[in-house]
Design a protein around this nucleic acid. Structure first.
Lengths: 138, 138
DNA sequence: AGCTGTGGTATCTGTTGGTGACTGACGCTA
DNA sequence: TAGCGTCAGTCACCAACAGATACCACAGCT
């Protein structure tokens, strides 16, 4: 089987999913789904994100054409972020997968517990796993 | 310090999307959608992935309960990977977002070109952006 | 001996994301 | 009038992680 053909169908998927797979991206896009938001507003809504990371994530989303950035040069300055048509378009499959994640998280957590029972030596190395395991513990 | 309640709806989404947002995860899951595959078979089908990354990605997917790993201790050893029910379940929203990515990649690429025109000084810092820009250039 | 094909590990580097300090013009307040 | 907080960032530094390169053990074939 030739890698190249089927390959080309899937590369862009990987690329774009890699983009939106950033740690905070989904949170931000779904928050913006309710309407335009200011920078600090987003920061408070998301909770736990640093300014630097929020800034760069929003820059990326702006670069990809998912959000617009509107600056009002007042004192204090005001910056509004809003989803573009493309962003709202993305919101559809994104929230679909979001609902899937919410609905199936127990299954994933159960699978993790199971895995650790079956492979007791498998120390979870990745932080994300540890985080999920803590969720599983409660 | 809990910022918001709606927060809790979205954390799991971020976590799971971060997992499947790995560079190769989507490729692998969609390949496995056609049926069980052997390690080397997957490696050839995906094309360009290193063994280590394929191994660890499959480990993660196994840990999350998306694939099963069946070892036949022959010489040479044989390892088969197959989607679980949970994995096939995930395949549905995942391929939805996959189709979105394929359909909308031109829009994203156009947005990137536009952004670089509007902000000529904005050298893309992230490697993923550079990769996409190269795609945009051709 | 040397090669291929099997699945996987050891090591190293580039990227991501996180922390804390700093900006600059203003408004509150004590 | 000196200090503190708001707002939307930037900068320097750093730990953690993802992913690429190289290697391993085993068997069969030539």
């Amino acid at each position: 089987m030739k890698p190249t053909d089927s390959h080309e169908d899937c590369r862009p998927v990987g690329e774009i999913l890699h983009q939106i797979g950033g740690k905070w991206t989904v949170l931000i896009i779904t928050r913006l789904g309710d309407g335009p938001k200011r920078f600090g507003e987003l920061k408070r809504m998301v909770g736990g994100i640093s300014q630097k990371v929020l800034t760069s994530t929003l820059r990326d989303l702006e670069m990809d054409g998912f959000v617009t950035r509107t600056v009002t040069p007042s004192i204090p300055p005001r910056v509004d972020y809003e989803l573009t048509d493309l962003g709202r378009d993305l919101l559809v499959p994104l929230s679909a997968i979001g609902e899937w994640a919410i609905a199936n998280r127990p299954r994933v957590l159960a699978a993790r517990r199971q895995y650790l029972e079956d492979h007791p030596e498998a120390m979870p190395k990745r932080a994300a796993h540890v985080a999920l395991m803590k969720q599983a513990a409660e």
